[in-house]
Structures are given as C-alpha cells and as structure tokens.
C-alpha cells in the first residue's frame, strides 16, 4: 500500500517537472513551427544555474526567483540570435541549427562547471520528511517541489485560457498568419513564447536540482521524454502536455517497480498506443 502511494508521488513529481519542460517545447513546436532539439539544454542550464545561484544566495527558492527571469531574458536572446531565422526553414535545417546549440551549451557547461555531478543543497527548513504511513516517510522538499509545479501549471493555464495574451497564443497556435493579419506583430509574440518556454524548462531544472543534482547530459533524457509528451498530448496543446506528462510520470514510476526489465520502453509503448488510437495525440487537431 505505502509502496503504491510512494510510486504515485514519485510519478506525479516526475510528471509535473516534465510538464514544465514539455510545455515550452509543445508551444514552440505548435506556434513557431520549430523543432527545438536544444530545449533539454535549458533544463540542464537551469540545474547548473541552481548550483551557482544557491552557492551565492544559499537557497534554492532564491535561485528559482532569480533564475527564471534570467532564463526568460536568455531565451529571448537565443530566439533573436538563432531561432527566428528558422521560422521559414524546413525541419532539417531547424534540427541542424538546434543540434549545434546543444553542442554549444554542452561545451559552455563543461567549461563553466566541469564534468562531475554536483549536488545542490535542499534548504534546511525543508530537509525533513513527513510520515505518510507509520513506517514510511516522504521528503518535505519533494512535496514543496510538487506544490510549486502545480502552482506554475495553474498559472500557465490561467494565462493561456483567460488573458488577452493567452488568447493570442491560442490563436497563433492554429493560425499565426491570421494573427499577424489582424494587427499583432508575430515577431514579438514568438519571442515571448520562446522565452517563456525556456524559462519554464529552466524552472524545472532548478526545482529538480536538489533532488537530481546537476550533471552533464541531464537535459538529454528530458528532451527525449518531452518529445514523447508532445506526441502523446498533441502538438501545441498545453492540456495535452499536462495529461501526457502525468501519464508518463506514473507509467515510468510504476514500470520501474513492477516490470523493471521493461521500464525504459514503457513510455514508448504508451506513445505507440496513443498514436494508434489518436494519431494527432490526445488533444491534437487533425
């Protein structure tokens, strides 16, 4: 019983972090039409930023508060320097340029932070565990992490469903040219969407850092899994990304316990099943 409870919590935690990472990927793909292989790098840079910022400020939440706006500005700069040149290009060119970005970011990471895994401290006031059942505890930091992820997810959905900016984002997801023809400069919209995606991925990397630590290549798994989320949820769909992320988190967590031999392929099996039943994903348009 308690094992199941723990796996549910682990699955949700993984799923929620994945959602933060994948939401940016799906929006960038759905609205900007760009396949961004470098998206996982922003998660990785988030984790390393957490290392540096907690070393300086002493607290992961200060690192989060400082890191997210920095990541937004960084994302806007990357969009201006590289990504905006890819909007009218084919997917092969997008893949080549964003793969080059991965190499660049990896190189920067090695130069700045080195090759060894680095652990990031959990704040002392959250380092205890709460007991879920008589014989089982769960780290308080992980509960806090999930709470923040849920709040960020709610905030994001609120912005997308209820605000004027969100209306623009949804419209651009279905017909960016029409958005432009109705008087909205899509260059600015695209830059904000990309930068927000980078900020969300970095937020996930920062929040995960005390649990996962920071190490080279940490963004790779996030990238691949995020693409699986995008396919399962439907390109451009935030709701789909949310559901897909939680599904993957839970399937992964339970797979590791019940069918450890097949755990690593389970999410791809899930993706295959979704694709057979709904070729454009859970919330994708035909």
């Amino acid at each position: 019983m308690s094992l199941i409870l723990v796996q549910i919590l682990n699955g949700l935690q993984y799923g929620l972090l994945l959602f933060l990472a994948a939401s940016g990927l799906t929006l960038v793909f759905g609205i900007l039409g760009v396949i961004n292989l470098a998206h996982g790098s922003f998660y990785m840079l988030g984790a390393y930023a957490a290392l540096t910022l907690t070393a300086r400020f002493g607290d992961i939440f200060v690192a989060l508060a400082a890191g997210v706006p920095l990541a937004f500005l960084f994302g806007a700069a990357i969009e201006w320097l590289f990504i905006r040149h890819l909007y009218k290009r084919d997917h092969l060119q997008q893949v080549l340029v964003t793969f080059a970005l991965i190499l660049m970011f990896d190189e920067a990471q090695q130069t700045l932070w080195g090759n060894y895994p680095e652990s990031i401290p959990t704040p002392s006031y959250l380092s205890s565990s709460i007991s879920l059942t008589s014989d089982l505890g769960y780290p308080v930091y992980r509960i806090a992490l999930m709470t923040i992820c849920v709040l960020l997810a709610i905030a994001m959905m609120f912005v997308i469903q209820r605000t004027r900016f969100g209306r623009l984002v949804r419209a651009a997801e279905s017909n960016p040219e029409m958005v432009e023809a109705l008087g909205f400069d899509s260059r600015i919209l695209f830059r904000i969407v990309f930068a927000a995606g980078v900020a969300m991925a970095a937020a996930a990397g920062i929040l995960a850092a005390p649990v996962e630590s920071a190490y080279p290549g940490i963004g790779d798994r996030v990238l691949i899994t995020s693409f699986v989320v995008v396919v399962i949820g439907g390109i451009g769909s935030i709701r789909g990304a949310f559901l897909g992320s939680l599904l993957i988190g839970l399937v992964d967590a339970f797979g590791k316990v019940f069918v450890p031999k097949f755990a690593s392929v389970l999410i791809y099996a899930l993706m295959a099943i979704v694709l057979v039943l709904r070729p454009s994903g859970l919330f994708g348009r035909q």
């Binding site: 279905s174 040219e177 029409m178 023809a181 109705l182 008087g183 899509s186």
Partner: peptide, 19 residues
C-alpha cells in the same frame, strides 16, 4: 501585415481563418 492592419486594413481571407 500587422502594421498594415493597424493602419486600417481589415482582412477576410479565403477559407475564413477562424480561430
């Protein structure tokens, strides 16, 4: 196009382009 739209041109495209 966005600047032209703001300068006073409204567009009703072929195929409608409803969101």
């Amino acid at each position: 196009a966005s600047a032209i739209a703001r300068a006073g041109v409204g567009f009703v495209p072929e195929g409608r382009g409803i969101f």
